[in-house]
Nucleic acid binder design. Structure first.
Length: 104
DNA sequence: ATTAAGGCATGAA
DNA sequence: GTTCATGCCTTAA
């Protein structure tokens, strides 16, 4: 892990932690706000070293669907957490127009 | 030490 | 719903 990557992780986590409760954002949004590509966001989250302080469950795909089986503890956990925050799923998907958060 | 190939928690066409 | 394009990282030789 290089210092560069660590710095990106810090920026990413900082922004992710800024997501309000009950809202979600997409990898692309985060990537665009941070200045790097969506894939890198997923990469950094996958190599996430601080998942406890990083509400990665609020980060979903561009389609509003959950990331998948590669999530921190499983997609079911993520779904549960999101529902606990008041987010309503529609056929395993989230309405980004309602719960989407504008990264900034 | 450097170089090569594969894989991914994506996005857009 | 499927396929293509793209960036970075991880592991292997």
């Amino acid at each position: 892990m290089t210092e560069e990557s660590k710095r990106r992780q810090t920026a990413l986590f900082r922004l992710v932690a800024k997501i309000p409760r009950g809202k979600v954002t997409t990898y692309g949004e985060l990537g665009r706000a941070l200045g790097f590509h969506a894939r890198l966001v997923g990469r950094l989250l996958h190599t996430n070293n601080d998942p406890l302080n990083t509400p990665c469950h609020r980060v979903v795909r561009s389609s509003g669907e959950l990331a998948g089986g590669y999530a921190f503890g499983g997609p079911n956990i993520q779904k549960n957490l999101l529902e606990s925050e008041g987010i309503v799923f529609q056929k395993q998907k989230i309405d980004l127009k309602t719960y989407g958060w504008e990264a900034r």
